[in-house]
Design a protein around this nucleic acid. Structure first.
Length: 581
RNA sequence: GCCCUCGUAGCUCAGUGGAUAGAGCAAAGGUUUCCUAAACCUUUGGCCGUGCGUUCGAUUCGCACCGAGGGCGCCA
């Protein structure tokens, strides 16, 4: 898809090529530093070296030789030492960008680069019979955002919640429930009780071997399809999904599939047989199946000596299933950094087995969450923060601010806005920076409403909507008084207007970049800069009281486009926007 | 011992071959008869962890070291 800025780049490139002074492969136009008053620059160092002239000289000569077509987007060409700088034509910029944003609407920023290709995104993946906590929320939020981004880029996306519903841990749950009885509570409370059962049983298990045997027995019975074990397992899965769904709904998280680890159980034998047949693994004397060390990847097991399978075995089966079922171009796992080695081993093994050579296997890793004292969050330490409580707390704090800032809103709207703002703050906390970083759980910072925060972005959107609402009320019509008339939009030549327009033009590039880097924060950054640019515009350029009716219309159009683009950006992050706040 | 991630302003982070390294928070000061002050403006604040190399040019690439976090056979 060719948006305005793409066309500008194409035109600059073509104009430079047409001079015949720079070889095609040395035309490396790039975005200049922010303090340079230009939209694109050509550093002439390499071409000058090849031509045997000084870079500033080449830059000057190129400036003279450049020929631009009549309807070009290029407004100004300037020589700055060794750099040849290009700026967009102010009137063209306004007309073309606003046309892009308003005619594409909700799909402004979308692209067709993924056309015909499938991306599988695995995220969230909480354990059954446990409450979701801050650890899961990172995977959930980052994954949902990446899923949104790839869909916008034209990929066919398949999202999968790889539920932790199998393994030895489940034998413990079964044994504990059989002994102590099923929790009678509902939702997260039932999960909390299950956690308590699990913890108590595990603790006792360490001292009483009989309990350990009992857990293993249940684990085996489950694998063998024992009806009672199976029923209890299904019940646990159901109440977990039910409780989680409430959280997912609030976060706007959806999945195409929730297969879970158990889904792959019947494929274990084939996986092990295939690994052995391909020579990627061997059977050790003690009966275990070993994948030997290779390329500094330490050896690991595919099967225990007692015949049991492992997380890795199921993950290999999962890859093979996905390849067969969806024929993806890319599989993306959103899982914490501690599992980095696991995924490198997994990917290497799958390839050694002869699969996925033309498929990108990607582990998008994220850092650990620490508490204010720098301690990792854990149930054992008692500093764990659970998702539902986190969201409730965030919404409550947002509500308190609304009472103070905007007490006249109707009750229902107050609650709605509090939910949007509170949840948005939690989501943004996981997306505003590079996911690889460890984060410290700081309530005040996470829920702060100024600076680079979700609230600031939502506030900017609400201000835009407020202006547009008043404009339609004044006019007594339903239609916003905007225009796509180039002559009118040419009035947008104030620095704040031009700066905002330029930035709106960068949105499609931000979406592509976010996709290429698996980095939602690129979009968060774009949204933040948009809000700041709008803030300046808001101060400097009166809209409803603009000097002339034409300028008023032009500015209203800019406001409408800003609101639209900001909404699109926040949507990709999974953050909703309020009309008022 | 080996492997991975991170090290940029007091704090939290962008920038990752090119022009004077940017934001927010914190600190100090200013702006509201005017579209939402949950806002805007100004000021203060940097041997870009250290060293050596590659390059016309390095915060960005390579190597070594230092510091922080994580990982390395029968858990997930």
């Amino acid at each position: 898809m060719e948006y305005t800025f793409d066309q500008f780049v194409t035109q600059v490139h073509a104009a430079i090529a047409a001079t015949g002074r720079v070889p095609e492969d040395l035309i490396e136009v790039q975005k200049p530093k922010a303090n340079v008053p230009a939209d694109l620059t050509l550093p002439t160092f390499k071409a000058a070296r090849q031509a045997g002239v000084a870079p500033p000289k080449l830059a000057s000569e190129l400036a003279v030789a450049l020929q631009l077509p009549a309807d070009t987007l290029v407004g100004a060409v300037a020589v700055a030492g060794p750099y040849l700088n290009f700026s967009m034509h102010p009137a063209q910029l306004a007309a073309r960008v606003l046309y892009d944003v308003l005619s594409y609407g909700d799909t402004y920023g979308h692209d067709d680069e993924g056309q015909g290709r499938t991306v599988i995104v695995e995220y969230s993946s909480p354990n059954v019979a446990k409450r979701m906590h801050v650890g899961h929320i990172r995977s959930t939020i980052i994954g949902q955002s990446l899923n949104n981004i790839y869909r916008a880029l034209g990929y066919h996306t398949v999202s999968d919640n790889h539920l932790g519903d199998w393994g030895k841990q489940f034998g413990v749950i079964l044994a504990a429930v059989m002994r102590d009885g099923k929790p009678q509570a509902e939702g997260e409370h039932a999960l909390a009780e299950l956690e308590a059962l699990y913890t108590r049983y595990s603790t006792e298990m360490k001292e009483h071997g009989a309990l350990d045997d009992e857990a293993r027995r249940w684990s085996l019975q489950l694998e063998q399809g024992d009806p009672q074990a199976r029923e209890l397992w299904q019940w646990s899965v159901d109440i977990t999904l039910q409780a989680n769904r409430r959280n997912y709904d609030r976060l706007g998280v959806t999945f195409d599939h929730i297969y879970g680890e158990s889904f792959y159980e019947h494929m274990m034998e084939d996986v092990i047989a295939a690994a052995l047949a391909k020579g990627a693994a061997y059977r050790d004397e003690d009966g275990s199946v070993v994948v030997p060390e290779q390329d500094k990847l330490p050896l690991f097991l595919l099967q225990r000596k007692d015949g049991g399978t492992l997380y890795m075995t199921r993950d290999v089966a999962t890859v093979l299933f996905r390849l067969r079922e969806f024929n993806p171009a890319r599989i993306i796992y959103i899982v914490g950094s501690p599992q980095e080695l696991h995924f490198r081993q997994l990917f290497a093994l799958v390839r050694a087995m002869g699969y996925a050579h033309d498929v990108e296997l990607v582990h998008v890793q994220f850092g650990t969450v620490f508490d204010a004292q720098g301690q990792p969050l854990s149930t054992r330490r008692g500093n764990m923060v659970y998702l539902e409580l986190l969201l409730d707390e965030a919404v409550q704090r947002a509500r308190a601010v609304i009472e103070q800032k905007n007490p006249d809103l109707p009750e229902a709207e107050k609650q709605e806005v509090a939910e949007i703002v509170g949840v948005g703050a939690v989501v943004y906390n996981d997306l505003y920076q590079d996911t690889r970083r460890n984060i410290t759980l700081d309530w005040d910072k996470m829920l702060s409403t100024d600076g680079n925060s979700a609230t600031y972005l939502q506030y900017s959107y609400a201000r835009c909507r407020s202006i547009l609402r008043k404009a339609t009320e004044d006019a007594g019509t339903d239609e916003p008084a905007t225009t796509l008339d180039a002559a009118v939009l040419a009035l947008l030549e104030a620095p704040a207007e031009q700066s905002l327009l330029r930035h709106l033009a960068q949105f499609p590039a931000a979406v592509r970049d976010a996709g290429a880097r698996y980095a939602p924060f690129v979009i968060a950054d774009w949204c933040y800069t948009t809000a700041r640019e709008f803030g300046v515009f808001f101060e400097q350029c009166p809209v409803l009281k603009a000097e002339t009716p034409a300028l008023r219309t032009a500015r209203l159009t800019l406001v409408a486009a800003t609101a639209q683009a900001l909404k699109n950006g926040l949507w990709l992050l999974g953050i909703r926007v309020p009309e008022r706040m």
